[in-house]
Design a protein around this nucleic acid. Structure first.
Lengths: 210, 210
DNA sequence: CGGGCAATGTAACTTTTGATACAGAAAACG
DNA sequence: CGTTTTCTGTATCAAAAGTTACATTGCCCG
């Protein structure tokens, strides 16, 4: 586990902290589609992502979701930290976008290290800051952009996270993430295809780079 | 200043920390409408709000703003902390909703105290958590609600922050905060009046409690 | 290879929001 | 008091997004 940790976090944490993490943390693997955290869950461990990607969703009161952002290697979920420290229920759902690995750290330790290791403190703050920034971007998208732009940005994000220009999703799945209807997505995708920005296949979309 | 501090923060911080704050902090008063932080500002001090209320706005790329949330006594601006620690430009604008007072704390001190005082650490984390929650609420509003609901929530927020059911704003000002046009606001306000939820006056709106 | 099913395409219509234009009412002010 | 400015009400039209309904197209699998 130590070597795995060093791969993703070796540059950020000092030796002693890496050792401590290796001692108390539990390694966990997950598969694409796994629900790692659900609305209302109480969370007592903090996840550090070693590999793979996770998408974070917000739930509507009456049915429906909205994609907030993706997490990658080296990220942690600030929303989860918020829940840990505040001892409240989870406000979000975390779904595995790809298979991957996380290490789980008990809340007690994460608090202890805050006083003990400056590098840990910086990491936690940087995570909060990244997440606030991602939330701001989500708000920008919602408030200032039309659905066609949001859709195109979504496709770019997906491509970046999955490291491929072939996006393996049905229109319905995309509609869920963007909190709209399948028909709207089909319509706008067709428009994007006509503009030459993408090519549509069955259950997959190909990004056409200029 | 010490007594002022104790009024808002006496229950959260220990004596020693309050003393330290009183030593290094600068007291600053502001008037309604003052722009306390603007987009692109570099921020080197962290504000603690003692009295009054502040609204935090996000800027559109090409003209236009959106209200994110309000700050009250005992709050601090996590977005500002993010900028302080990350040493980046401000992503938001802070405008005084009422007159009030803040104490300004140098970034260096706020970092020092993070290692030194557990109460400070908790305060900073709680602030981040509150702000994340407010951002989530902002996203809920944008993603899941129509303009009429957003408008009504806005009026309720305003009333709570200003501690009065008489909201002294023109339709144009409300339109700015909600990032829409004056005509839309007028239309929806009229509809709310017809439903008996508010009464309209010139340059002010009266909330009618059920 | 043909039936069944999931995924997509498309038409027609409604609702919501935004844009423009202008009229009337209230305050502001010399 | 009359003029000017600000604020509000409303009508009309256009665009964006949501809804419903149904046709078509591939694909899986017996």
């Amino acid at each position: 586990m130590l070597s795995l940790l060093k791969e993703s976090y070796g540059y950020i944490f000092e030796e002693k902290l890496l050792d401590e993490i290796a001692q108390v943390a539990q390694l966990k693997t997950f598969e694409e589609g796994d629900i790692l955290i659900d609305f209302g869950d109480y969370i007592k461990t903090m996840p550090l992502l070693l590999s793979g990607a996770i998408k974070i969703l917000r739930e509507d009161f009456d049915e429906g979701e909205l994609l907030l952002y993706f997490l990658e290697k080296g990220d942690t979920c600030a929303m989860t930290m918020a829940c840990c420290l505040g001892e409240t229920k989870s406000e979000i759902r975390a779904v595995a976008e790809t298979k991957g690995e996380v290490v789980m750290i008990p809340v007690a330790k994460m608090e202890e290290w805050l006083g003990k290791y400056k590098s840990w403190r910086n990491f936690v703050f940087n995570s909060y800051n990244s997440r606030l920034k991602e939330m701001l971007m989500a708000i920008d998208n919602l408030a200032f952009m039309n659905m066609d732009e949001r859709l195109y940005n979504y496709l770019l994000d997906k491509a970046q996270i999955n490291k491929t220009d072939f996006i393996q999703n049905t229109h319905q799945e995309i509609a869920y993430d963007l909190h709209t209807s399948r028909v709207v997505i089909s319509r706008l995708l067709k428009a994007l295809e006509n503009k030459g920005k993408i090519k549509l296949h069955r259950a997959s979309i190909e990004l056409v780079r200029a």
